[in-house]
Amino acid sequence: MGRIEIRFAGFGGQGIGLLGRLLGEAVSLYEEGKNSVMTQSYGPESRGGASSTDVVIDTIEIDYPKATELDYFVVLSEEAYQKYIPKLKKGGILFVEEDLVTLDDQANKAKKIFKIPATKIAETLGSRLFANIAMLGFVCANTEGIVSEEALTQVMKEKIKAKYVEKNLIAFQKGKEYKQE
C-alpha cells in the first residue's frame, strides 16, 4: 500500500469533521502498521457553505500532511462537489450522497462512482444527523485496505456520546449493507 488520500466534504452541520476524526483515529490507533494524519478546512475557507476534512494514510511516516491529489472523495453536498471535484485524481473513486449532488461528468475523472441516499437512510432512524455515519459505513464496505469495520466501530463507541452510539452503529450498518441500484 502506498500513500492514500481521502477527502470528506459537505456543508456545515453534516458532521464532516467527525468523519475525518473517526477514520484518522481508527487507522492511527487500531490498524497495525498504518499511520494517518487528519486536517480540516479552517478559517475563511471553512466559513459559509463547504466544510471538508482530509485524511492521509500510509504505511510509512507521512511526510506531507495535506492532501494533494485525492484517491477518494466522499461528498455530501453540491457546493462541496463543485468546489473539490477537480482535486479527485484521474482513476480516483467517488462516493456521493445521491440526493444532494448532481454529478457533472465533464469535471469528474473518477474510475468508479458509488451513490447512496445517506440522508434518507438516516431519516428512517429519526434524524438526518446520522447521514454522515451511514456514508461512512458505505465507504467502509466499498473500499479495500483502508480501514476495518472493527476499528471504526471501536472508535465510534469511544468518540460518540453514549446516548447516540447505538443509532450511529445502526446507521453504519445500514450504510454498509446498502446496495447501489
Binding site: R21, G24, E25, S28, L29, N35, S36, V37, M38, T39, Q40, Y42, I62, P65, K66
Partner: peptide, 10 residues
C-alpha cells in the same frame, strides 16, 4: 506553526 497546531496524528 498553524499546520502542526491543527493537524491530528498519533
Amino acid at each position: 506553526d498553524e499546520i502542526l497546531g491543527h493537524m491530528s496524528e498519533k
